[in-house]
C-alpha cells in the first residue's frame, strides 16, 4: 500500500481507552486530527471505555490503554499509546510504508 489515500475507502477505527483521563483526552484529540487530516469524511470512529465495558476489552484482547484498532479496511492493525507520533500511527494503520 502506497502513501496515497483512496478517498473511497471507509475506515473503521476503534479506540479503547481507560476512563476519562488526560491520556484518554489526548489520544482522542490526536486521533481526530489525524482522521480529519488524512481521510476527512470517510471514517467511522468508535470510542470504548474499558472501565465501563471490560467484557468488550476481553473479547478484543486489549491490554494497553489507549489501544487503537483499525478494523477496516483489512488487514486489522493495532496501535497502542496516546497517538502523539502521527507518523507511527499512519505506518501502523498502513497509510505509510514501514520505515527503512
Amino acid at each position: 500500500m502506497g502513501a496515497s489515500v483512496d478517498t473511497n475507502t471507509s475506515y473503521l477505527l476503534k479506540l479503547f481507552v481507560a476512563g476519562d483521563s488526560s491520556r484518554t483526552g489526548l489520544a482522542v484529540a490526536n486521533l481526530r486530527h489525524i482522521c480529519e487530516d488524512e481521510f476527512p469524511g470517510c471514517y467511522e470512529l468508535v470510542i470504548i471505555d474499558v472501565l465501563r465495558h471490560p467484557g468488550i476489552a476481553e473479547e478484543n484482547k486489549i491490554l494497553a490503554a489507549p489501544t487503537l484498532i483499525k478494523e477496516r479496511p483489512l488487514p486489522v492493525r493495532r496501535i497502542i499509546g496516546d497517538l502523539s507520533d502521527k507518523e507511527k500511527v499512519l505506518t501502523g494503520i498502513g497509510l505509510l510504508p514501514p520505515q527503512r
Partner: peptide
C-alpha cells in the same frame, strides 16, 4: 498482528479485565 507503539500508554485495559 504486529503492534505499533505511538506515544504513552499503560496497561489499564488489562487491569480492567482482571478486575472484571
Amino acid at each position: 498482528q504486529d503492534q505499533v507503539e505511538s506515544g504513552r500508554y499503560d496497561l489499564g485495559a488489562l487491569l480492567a479485565r482482571i478486575e472484571y
